[in-house]
């Protein structure tokens, strides 16, 4: 008994961080100082991006008026929104199929592969595939490519959610007189909703700033935002890029935080 108490006290001591606070602070500084610099510099009045000359929202204004960036933004939105919708539907169906009707570790592993293999490999593979079947590279081929990996991410999240839900909910629905379709829409989908929403938001953020795959599978006339930024940066970083990055950061942060919040809220129910 006293042995156990002593152990508990020791565990408690170990759980207080102590001198480990230092590496923690250093790590966070390493992670967030570049981001902070970026955000601060986006409000810099100076044209040279790394010399502070006073506060200004000038670059945000210029950003809106930049034709290239606006076009890239629209293209990116088209891809991100459509890829999210398609990947969410397909990924959810894939997850339900794999988890409920085709229990096999190999099938499950294959369904998640596109999320795990290197982007470069996936990009080259997709490019080869598109040229093989004769698809003209365009925004549409980027969209399809984003659906491929997006679907895998949605499936991963939804399979995890399916593992937590009581399978007898669906049986109860059948027992109470509901057909298979009603059961799917009234019981299965709502009980998976937190997972589906989290998966969708994940796909949206991933698609928003995806560069490698878009670079390989896009046509020349419809650059997405990351490609536009890349071509701009080749001639030096402008404060405009800082402003753009700050906005993207804000969007991603908001989405990730709300995804976490939604999952936590609905998990409590």
């Amino acid at each position: 008994m006293s042995e156990a108490t002593a152990q508990a006290t020791r565990a408690k001591k170990r759980s207080t961080i102590g001198w480990l606070r230092l590496p923690l602070i250093v790590t966070y500084a390493f992670l967030y100082i570049p981001i902070a610099v970026l955000v601060v510099m986006s409000f810099n009045a100076s044209k040279t991006p790394f010399v502070w000359q006073g506060f200004s929202t000038r670059w945000y204004g210029e950003l809106v008026n930049n034709e290239l960036i606006r076009e890239g933004f629209i293209n990116t939105m088209i891809v991100a929104i459509s890829a999210t919708i398609l990947a969410t539907i397909l990924g959810t169906l894939l997850a339900i199929g794999v988890a409920r009707y085709f229990r096999s570790a190999i099938v499950e592993a294959y369904s998640l592969t596109p999320a795990i293999i290197p982007d470069l490999a996936l990009a080259i593979g997709l490019l080869a595939f598109f040229s093989l079947i004769g698809v003209t590279l365009s925004l549409f081929s980027v969209l399809l490519s984003h659906v491929v990996f997006g679907m895998a991410f949605v499936a991963a999240v939804v399979i995890a959610r399916l593992g937590q839900t009581d399978a007898s909910l669906e049986e109860a629905s059948r027992d109470l007189g509901a057909g298979a379709t009603t059961t799917f829409f009234k019981i299965t989908l709502p009980s998976l909703a937190p997972g589906i929403i989290a998966g969708a938001l994940l796909v949206f953020t991933l698609s928003l700033d995806e560069f490698v795959i878009a670079f390989f599978t896009n046509g020349p006339s419809t650059p997405t935002l990351p490609i536009v930024i890349y071509s701009m940066v080749r001639f030096g970083v402008t404060p405009e890029i800082n402003a753009l990055a700050a906005i993207l950061l804000l969007v991603s942060f908001t989405i990730v935080l709300s995804a976490q919040r939604i999952t936590r809220l609905t998990d409590a129910v």
Binding site: E171, A172, R174, L176, G179, A193
Partner: peptide, 20 residues
């Protein structure tokens, strides 16, 4: 008959109440 057409009802061990 399929389960949804049977004139019987089952109370599940886990109760299977719809959480939403």
């Amino acid at each position: 008959l399929p389960p949804n057409k049977r004139p019987v009802n089952l109370m599940f061990q886990s109760y299977a109440l719809f959480p939403h």
